[in-house]
Design a protein around this nucleic acid. Structure first.
Lengths: 230, 230
DNA sequence: CGTGCCATTGAGTCAATTCAACTTAAGTGG
DNA sequence: CCACTTAAGTTGAATTGACTCAATGGCACG
């Protein structure tokens, strides 16, 4: 199928006409890069760093964020196993990437990847698709941040997580990020995220066995919470 | 320099390491597409339409937006002369593109452009850069929508417009979009946009000779309004 | 068994919204 | 060219959704 198996599954609904399903097989690319580990909360690369490497996540989860001078933070993406990060190089990384938990990645030298892309049409297509996918995702994110209510955002976020966990058993969602991370992803405060989760819980739509797990009891109702109510 | 002269100048600060300055010369590409006109408020392409064509704007301005089922709208980008739109095709356009005023564009068939990109490394690089630029812009937009105050957003928007108009005389900004458009771009209401403009005016930072023109009287103070105050 | 981090809940505040009135500018047709 | 109509923009007052501040609960770890 593909040489790189660049996959991003951070999708709400499957991106029309852009279907790179997650392939987590070893990949022939493994030889090209070397495996690196990062402990929880460690920085993989920082905004403004030279974009020497791109990374493919093998296990663990990563947050990609931008920070304002006064500490306000916006998270653009949560990357999960199988995802590629740091592809959208300019000369510097546009985001900071930090490990949400213990993370294993494969690092690919930028120059090599570029050369590979020049020679191999398949690789090129995949890099291009990855970029298009990220743009598509960012544009959807804009609607969320610009026009959705707090409840819609949180519900939508859970639906996203649910979609990405489709391979596992459907209802049990793994939530590797903190409430603060969720808040910074959704443009809310930690308290508001909490309250919305409580609200969904009180409606019987979800349950929260522990802070890193959410169980969806009524997926249809959850999806409905994504849309305007009346 | 470049075969396509794909340029997007929708930048706040120049994107580091991604410097495609606006080149509006005729371009050898003109032969490849045909010129089309659109009147104010007409649709160039709609979200979900087959992505048959991409367009280069010759004159006029275009808004690229997404609409929610209940009418809430989020504008992702305003495209000006020299900008390319509809490149980020999946199979369908992800956005609706509408003319803000009378617009002239050159339409390029998608298949042709793809073939051209396959053959010509320069074209490829430009398409790739354009995509990276759009992603970069969208990610900055996320910070604005997720974490900035109303005043910061409006001030930042004016700075953006100022940067894009750099070729003209610096202080006089052309504002082809309505207040509603600005509101939908910034995730605010029309009233809030108005109030912030009034505030900037009362501070002596800008003047508003007419609704489609804003004069910057104090660029430094405008930039300062972009940042947190205390 | 503290100590610290994260999450939750409550109470009060505030920035931005909604609702409403009004002004200004831009067509349009006689 | 002017009267009429409509669209766009501005301002004020009241409302509200999300935020800030503050207190408390729960769990992990040394």
């Amino acid at each position: 199928m593909s040489a790189l198996a660049l996959s991003t599954r951070q999708t709400n609904l499957p991106p029309p006409g852009l279907s790179h399903a997650a392939e987590r097989r070893p990949s022939m690319l493994a030889a090209l890069g070397n495996t690196v580990h990062f402990a929880r909360n460690n920085t993989i690369f920082g905004e403004g760093d030279d974009a020497e490497y791109s990374y493919r996540i093998l296990c663990g989860a990563v947050r990609l964020s931008k920070m304002m001078s006064d500490g306000r933070r916006q998270i653009a993406e949560f990357a999960l196993p199988g995802d590629f990060i740091g592809i959208n190089w300019l000369d510097e990384h546009a985001m900071t990437a930090e490990a949400l938990n213990d993370v294993t990645v494969v690092a690919y030298a930028r120059g090599r990847l570029e050369r590979l892309g020049d020679e191999n049409r398949d690789v090129r297509t995949e890099l291009f698709d990855k970029l298009r996918h990220d743009l598509w995702a960012a544009q959807n994110h804009l609607v969320i941040l610009g026009r959705q209510s707090a409840l819609e955002r949180v519900a939508g976020f859970l639906v996203q997580l649910m979609e990405r966990n489709k391979d596992r058993d459907g209802a049990r969602i793994d939530v590797p990020m903190t409430r603060q991370d969720i808040a910074d992803y959704l443009g809310l405060t930690i308290e508001t995220v909490c309250r919305m989760l409580t609200k969904l819980k009180s409606y019987g739509i979800i349950a929260i066995p522990d802070r890193h797990t959410i169980t969806v009891r009524n997926a249809a109702a959850l999806r409905r919470s994504t849309e305007p109510e009346e």
